[in-house]
Every structure is written in C-alpha cells, then in structure tokens.
Design a protein around this nucleic acid. Structure first.
Lengths: 151, 151
DNA sequence: CTTCATGTAACTATACATGTTACGATTCAG
DNA sequence: CTGAATCGTAACATGTATAGTTACATGAAG
C-alpha cells in the first residue's frame, strides 16, 4: 500500500504530529500519531527520533509511554524543526557540476546559485518567523470557524 | 560510471549547452555537447528536444547536422527555459497530503504553502530577469578576466 | 512476568533524472 | 545509390532518498 511519494514530507509530518500532541493531554504513542498522519509507526519513531536528539520532544517506553513535547511552543520555529531534521535539501533543481573548470558553466552556476540562495534565504526567514504557537493559534481559529459554520 | 545525482540539473545543462552553441559557429552535435556537459548524447537529445518543441532551438539530421539556437539570446530568460522543460518541481520538500480533512494538517499546509509560494515567486521572478544574453556577457567578462590574470 | 511501547536494524517499494543500448529515419558526400 | 553521419525515440538499467514493513531487543508499568 504505497501512496504517491515524490517529496520529503517530514517537516509537514512533524508539524502535524506536534500540533496533535499539543492538543492532547499526556503522551501519544507512535501508533496513535501514525494513525493521525496516515503513516507507519516505525517511520514516526524514526522521524520523531530526530526531534528527540534536538531536545524538542521526549519519549517514554513501556505502559502509558509515548511522545511528549519538551519545549515551549512559542520558542520552536519551523526553521528549528528543519534544522532538527538535518536540514534536508530544499530544492529539487540544481547545478550539474558544483565546481566546474569550464567558464561557461561557472557563469551558469553563478546565475543559478544567486537565484537559489535568495529564494532559500527568503524561505528560511519565513520558517524562522513561524512558531508552533502560531500554528496552534491558527488551528484554534479554524476550529472556531468550523463550529460557527455548523451552527 | 555514475556521478552523485540527487537533483534535476536539466536547467543547468541546457544553459551550459546553449552558451556553448552561442559561442560556436554552425550547428553542434549531441555528441559534442555531451562532451562539453559530461553527459550522454542521448540525454542531450532528450533534453534539447524539449527546447526544440518550445521553438528555442532547431535540429538538423545527417552530415554536418546538429543543434542551432533559433531565438534571440536577449529574449530568452531562464524562466522560459524552465517552462520549456515542463516546469519541473522546484522544491524537494512538500506537504504530506495536499487536501487534508484534518484541521491541524490544514493549518500546517497553509503555513508551509505560504512560505513555499513566496520563495517560488521570488525564484521565478529572478529567473525571468536573467536572459541568455546576460549569461553570455557574464561569460565574456570572466573570459577577459582570466586573460588579464594570465598576462 | 507479562504487556506495552520505544529503539533500531535490515530489507523492500516507489519515483524520477540520468545512463546505456539499439534501431529507425533523414541528410549529404562520393 | 551506397554508406556514413546525425537526430528521434523506445526500452531498459542505475542510483538515491524517503517511506513502508518486518523483526526483535530494550525498558517501564502494572
């Protein structure tokens, strides 16, 4: 049972998981988080393990164990989460050869690198501006809006 | 003989090829371009074929055949070349599920999409600002600089 | 001590650019 | 008209990273 997989969705996954954990009292198991995400529990452990190494979450084994957030939602930005995941490559496009001798290719690389570095800087700045608390607030707003629509 | 391949380098490749063609009198064969790029001639034909469909280059078969630029260098931007290649995905990172019912995931997607769309818009704007003529001029500058350094 | 849960290793599945081989189609030299 | 040169394209192989899966060891709670 494989879904269409073409891009790294770990940042999206951990955000989804962390917000569910923030809305939930007590630890959540990999099994439960996997159901929320539509993902395999082992993949959840694998990915959340990176956040554990960064000190953002903690895990407890055994009965009534699971994952807990061990940081203030207001202090954790998307930028930090991207870093905790090992700063995976942002772009699916790149230069053919990063250190060419050919002057033509050097000119091409310089032009492309300039554009990519600008776009990457903008993206990471935007990531730094958004915290888990911001996302939790946006979720709460959407939740209230849905209730209002239902009434 | 495989090199480290992780990203789509076709834009980089066609830029490299087009600048070599611009510096060269008469058509260039896929074989010759492949040597310039360190790429397979069949891959060159495959990729240049997309530019041919976009009307940016033409190919002639048989003796003394090969590829020619059929557009004004000043009018061809990186944006156009990206479009000619089929607008391949720019980001290697993305949402896990593009149309979730879960409000938590909707909030996550909204935040990520906002950042990605801004970065993509910036990148494509930068691409639109750079033409083949600009790159050719930058190459000429680098070429003159190297000569000056050698003397 | 049994059960639940994480920690991890090992293997598989998928997508996609790229590499490679093979052959047909076309153009030109002689 | 024959043959070499060259593009056009199909078919298949390769490499890589995330994600899925299976299996089992480790540790905590009742």
């Amino acid at each position: 049972m494989y879904s269409y997989m073409k891009r790294d969705s770990r940042l999206s996954s951990v955000l989804h998981a962390l917000l569910h954990m923030a809305e939930h009292d007590g630890p959540m198991t990999s099994e439960t988080l996997g159901q929320c995400l539509g993902a395999n529990p082992v993949v959840v452990r694998r990915t959340m393990g990176l956040l554990r190494e960064a000190g953002l979450v903690s895990a407890e084994r055994g009965h009534s164990g699971g994952w807990r957030i061990s940081a203030d939602l207001k202090t954790v930005s998307l930028r930090q989460l991207h870093a905790a995941l090992g700063e995976p490559a942002i772009f699916a496009i790149g230069n053919r050869n990063e250190t060419p001798e050919c002057l033509v290719e050097q000119a091409v690389n310089a032009a492309l690198d300039k554009a990519f570095l600008e776009a990457e800087a903008l993206l990471l700045d935007r990531f730094a501006d958004v915290t888990l608390a911001d996302l939790a607030a946006d979720f709460a707003r959407r939740h209230a809006e849905r209730r209002a629509t239902r009434d």
